[in-house]
Amino acid sequence: MQFEGAVVKEQGVTFAIVVVKPYVLNSSMECDDARQGFRSIFPGMPIILMAQGSRGVPTYQGRTDIIKFLANVHPSRIPWKRYNYN
C-alpha cells in the first residue's frame, strides 16, 4: 500500500498527517478505522486525516488544536512524502 503523508513537529508537538479520500471524513467510523490503520506507522503521534475536495481545498479531521494550526498553513508548506507500507 502506498499513501501520502507527513510528519510535522510544531510548537513541541509531533503529529502525522495522512491523505485520505473525501468520503472517509464523512463518517466518524471511517475516520476511526483509518486512524487505527495508521497507528502502527506513526506510533504515539496524533494522526490528522486530510482530504481535498474537487477544488483542491484541504479539509482536516483530528485534534482541534492541530486543525486550527493547519488552517493557517498552505498545503505546499507541509513536508509531504510517499510512504510504502505492506
Rank of each mutant, 00 (worst) to 15 (best):
A51Q: 06
W80Q: 04
Q61Y: 13
A34K: 12
R55G: 05
G12L: 09
I48K: 05
P46E: 07
Q11W: 04
M45S: 10
P58V: 07
D65M: 06
A34G: 10
Q11C: 02
A34E: 14
Q52G: 02
R39F: 00
I47E: 15
D33K: 15
V73G: 15
A16V: 15
K9E: 15
Q11E: 10
E10K: 05
P43E: 06
S27M: 04
K21S: 13
N72C: 03
G53I: 02
V20M: 07
P79N: 02
F69K: 03
H74G: 10
R35Q: 06
D32N: 03
F38E: 03
P58S: 06
R77N: 10
V18Y: 12
G53D: 15
M50R: 00
F3H: 09
V8F: 11
G53C: 04
R63G: 06
E4N: 11
K21F: 14
M1K: 09
V19C: 12
E4A: 04
M50V: 11
N84K: 01
P43C: 05
G37M: 03
W80E: 07
H74W: 14
V24T: 08
Q36W: 09
V19Q: 12
V73Q: 15
A6C: 06
A34R: 14
Q11V: 02
I66H: 08
V57T: 12
G12C: 08
I66E: 12
T64P: 11
M45I: 09
N26M: 01
R35S: 02
R63H: 10
V7L: 03
Y83T: 10
I48R: 04
T14E: 13
V24C: 04
I41D: 04
Y60R: 00
R39P: 01
N86Q: 07
Q11S: 07
F42K: 00
T64Q: 14
S40V: 01
N84V: 02
V13R: 12
R77L: 01
V73R: 14
V8H: 12
F15N: 14
A6K: 03
Q36F: 04
Q61G: 07
V24G: 07
V8R: 11
K81I: 13
M29I: 09
R39A: 01
R35Y: 03
D33H: 14
V20T: 09
D65G: 02
R63A: 06
S27W: 12
Y83S: 07
V73K: 14
I48H: 09
T14N: 11
R39S: 00
N26V: 01
R39G: 00
R55K: 08
N26D: 09
Q2I: 02
F15G: 12
R35W: 04
W80V: 02
T64W: 13
G62C: 07
D32C: 01
P43H: 08
Q36G: 08
P79W: 05
Y85H: 06
Y23K: 00
M29N: 11
M45K: 15
F38L: 03
Y60W: 05
T14R: 15
G12M: 09
R55S: 08
I17Q: 12
C31N: 08
P22Y: 14
I47N: 15
M29Y: 13
A51F: 08
T64I: 10
